[in-house]
Design a protein around this nucleic acid. Structure first.
Ligand code: MN
Ligand code: MN
Ligand code: ZN
Ligand code: ZN
Lengths: 139, 139
DNA sequence: AGTGTAAATGAGAAGAGTTTTCATTTATAT
DNA sequence: ATATAAATGAAAACTCTTCTCATTTACACT
């Protein structure tokens, strides 16, 4: 029951918020742009404005329910937070997104930040490339 | 003499291109937005349009003379390519940018891409945090 | 040096993605 | 039920960047 998650975040339980959560939970694609969410809502018969979708996603991000990927050149993409941090591989040809966790990289980042005297708050790591399927298609 | 670099890249040797190169070479700040370059040109007395600055920087990027950082939420930032690849640390408080190279991370990225069947074309890694100076100021 | 032609430029319009504004509606505490 | 603060929708605004198109420029070839 996600009404509780909303209340915990200090957010009123509204239809747009519940529906956006529902989309994020039930969608086949884990990573969705605001536009994707907006269209999924329309297909579901919910006429929720795009501005509201942006607002709600941003609030969810603030509440730690959702994380935002800022992909080079493109739209922001959102995904439900499900506990653990991970980074991403992106196919530049078909936009497929894969996830990975690498403790070696995570640790090196901490060391580098410490060496430079930085108090690390976060990091963003994207590996761009051509996925297996797209390599096949290209021959 | 950088006219040669331009010619090698198949670009005509024009005043805007020479001046943008000059700015990038002589500036104190290694990392500059298009706007920064534009303003530096104005201060130098060169009335070169912002659209031209964007065009020239994008062409320089294509020619491998310049690389572009896509920083979360903000403007793109450009820097002269000087041989080796490096990644960046960014202070979220004062926008200071520091550079680092870490072969362990570079290698792990190759391994991860290979494991996922990706042909890696590039990567982007930013460590966000608070720099030493800003930590002092904040107490 | 002069000429032709393709490329480059400047100014402003357009574009994409996202945020803001503001009048109206809604959730929720009383 | 009522009051009130918060949320919403629609459109406008915003920011950064690219495009359009008329004019200018670089440079290959006389
Ligand atoms: Mn993910
Ligand atoms: Mn750099
Ligand atoms: Zn692909
Ligand atoms: Zn700082």
């Amino acid at each position: 029951m996600e009404s509780q998650d909303l209340r915990k975040a200090g957010l009123k339980v509204t239809l747009p918020r519940l529906k956006v959560l529902e989309i994020l939970e039930q969608t086949a694609q884990r990573h969705m742009s605001a536009e994707d969410v907006y269209k999924a809502l329309l297909e579901m018969g919910e006429e929720i404005g795009l501005a509201t979708v942006y607002r709600v996603l941003t609030q969810f991000e603030g509440a730690g329910l959702v994380s935002r990927l800022s992909i080079e050149g493109g739209h922001a993409v959102f995904e439900l937070v499900d506990g653990s941090h991970h980074d991403h591989l992106l196919c530049v040809s078909c936009n497929r997104i894969e996830e990975f966790v690498d403790e070696v990289i995570e640790e090196r980042q901490r060391v580098i930040a410490a060496e430079k005297g930085f108090e690390m708050t976060e990091h963003s790591l994207y590996i761009y490339g051509i996925c297996k399927e797209c390599q096949k298609k290209a021959g």
